[in-house]
Design a protein around this nucleic acid. Structure first.
Lengths: 341, 341
DNA sequence: TTGTACGCGTTATCAG
DNA sequence: CTGATAACGCGTACAA
């Protein structure tokens, strides 16, 4: 690793003091046009590039933000990450992303390294568990933005969608098509996002006085295989659902897998609707009807909000804001009017 | 941001010198059992956690590696990133990933920030353009591993697949099914990966003395929309292909989009095969036949190799290695025997 | 406008 | 085994 040039090298070559060199290269303080020229030339000559580490130690700013999500592999997160990255790059920030895999333990570990590494701020989608550590960080003044989920007793700003309304819209759509036996494949209880989606499901049913049948509620913990199994159970049951509402992408593929395996036709035999959109959803047969979330925009917005806090006026009032973004019910071909309705 | 405890605080509380505290907490040097106890206790009491920035400044090691790829949004890259992350986390490393979007300019900019930020090593998939900067880094001793692609005149280790062989296998499969008018939707010329895939395509054709028809070769620069247009052109042409070989995932969706739009049936009217596998490929109608790359493993391996270099014995012999991993031709339902063959 | 000197929190060296 | 003390590269208050 060829030793990089430092301010000292530049200063020596330019025939000025190190402090001077620092001033013109960091453009602060004051200096004459002439020294500016000399320093700039010297810097170019030795290929000077500032040592970000040293600067960080001195200024206590790393220009790096930490991102903690469940799994970068899920397309919802991938595109949100891209949104964050794009905004971050624009402003000279880098990001470090960690996966919690919905494990409270991993989340805590990741959070610890993120803090140790002196992140200027954190963008987090908390999994379930005890978040006292998070609250402590927030109270301590760490810039923080919650995405996709909130956590009780933490009034940090959050960027989310109205999961309840979105779910209700989706299920109501099913109801309007005549469905009454609508199953839901949901994620882990306690995860706020998911509880809201379930609430929306329940609401849509209640609105039409359709009883909520426990046998039609499956918890697949956001996991593909669990959803696969859950769907199988649904199909084996005495009363088969005429429609299935799935709560995220991973579970959607598991569900479809089981449906294909059992040669259940969509939407003739069962209607299908899911949270999260993919490039591929449109090309499946039939094209999948889904609730699309603006994940890329959410990422950009999350970063912007975080940056606001970072540049924020000291310990002044924090923007205890909650941005609720619009989802879109993308109607394609996986839902049909119920047989005989 | 509550000020974090430093070695000085710990030392004061433990009644020892700062140097001593540093020794036991960093377990180097030597110290008595008794001071160890005292220091440990003090550290716990004040919630000491080492300042990674200061350590990095001193040791010139950030325990962070930079990853530079074209677009984290493509599933091939997403899962490779996950592989890198998992291995990195295991060893206490973090990663910073940048997207080049196949733009030489963006690549250079990203590389610069990565270097500025003092990455311990770099995992890179170079786009096309001048890589003198990269060569300079490598010669300068920066730990480096190339993934997916190589670059001329850079003998850094690389983790790749045998793109030529994989493409040949895919196209040969098409030929065995009786196809002779096989189109290819390829990426940008000059990108090594892609040139190899094209070479494999050409080879498979040559083996069977099938002339390579320029009209059947479309360059869609790895872009979805370009592929969409290219496919349309293919369908409008006087001699329609009976099969299409697509060189990556983004282009695959563009191609399928055009096929669906034109109501061309797969595989009855046209057979379809592509590089890259997705969770969804299996559930499309028909399920997509494809060349699957072990991207997750490639990521893990890339990190391991990089770590080897980082821990490598000083400026000793560099592992100018080239790992070529196996691809898998996953035969599903998108290819059929050609009509009348 | 310019130079000097100190400190950010570590690690590492050198006496004792 | 232990305690000073010097870097690492940069920002910045202070003096000139």
């Amino acid at each position: 690793m060829a030793k990089r040039a430092t301010l000292k090298d530049v200063a020596a070559r330019a025939g000025v003091s190190q402090g001077m060199a620092g001033r013109v290269l960091g453009n602060y303080g004051s200096y004459s046009k002439d020294t500016q020229r000399k320093v700039r030339a010297a810097a170019r000559a030795v290929h000077y590039s500032p040592n970000v580490i040293a600067k960080a130690l001195r200024t206590r700013r790393t220009r790096t933000v930490g991102v903690l999500i469940s799994d970068i592999t899920a397309s919802f997160w991938t595109s949100m990450i891209r949104g964050i990255q794009d905004r971050a790059a624009r402003d000279g920030y880098s990001i470090i992303v960690c996966n919690s895999d919905e494990q409270s333990h991993d989340e805590k570990a990741a959070l610890a390294t993120l803090v140790e590494r002196g992140m200027d701020g954190l963008i987090i989608s908390p999994t379930l568990g005890n978040h006292s550590y998070l609250r402590q960080l927030w109270r301590g003044g760490t810039p923080l933005v919650l995405v996709d989920r909130k956590v009780d007793g933490l009034d940090a700003p959050s960027i989310r969608v109205d999961n309840r309304a979105a779910a209700r819209e989706a299920v109501s759509y099913l109801v309007r098509l005549g469905h009454r036996r609508i199953a839901i494949i949901r994620g882990p209880e306690g995860v706020e996002t998911n509880d809201e989606r379930f609430a929306g499901y329940a609401e849509a049913l209640a609105e039409q006085r359709i009883p909520l049948q426990p046998a039609l509620v499956k918890n697949a913990r956001f996991l593909q295989e669990k959803s696969f199994e859950a769907t199988r159970e649904l199909l084996r049951a005495r009363i088969r659902p005429t429609a299935i509402f799935v709560c995220n992408e991973a579970m959607a593929s598991g569900c479809i897998h089981a449906l294909k395996e059992a040669r259940v036709r969509i939407p003739q035999d069962i209607s299908f609707i899911t949270f999260d959109d993919t490039v591929w959803a449109e090309y499946l047969d039939p094209p999948i009807t889904c609730v699309s979330q603006p994940s890329y925009s959410m990422g950009m917005l999350a970063f912007d909000h975080l940056l606001g806090q970072i540049h924020g006026h000291g310990g002044r009032a924090r923007p205890q804001e909650e941005v609720v973004m619009k989802t879109r019910l993308v109607i394609r071909g996986s839902c049909a009017r119920v047989n005989g309705a």
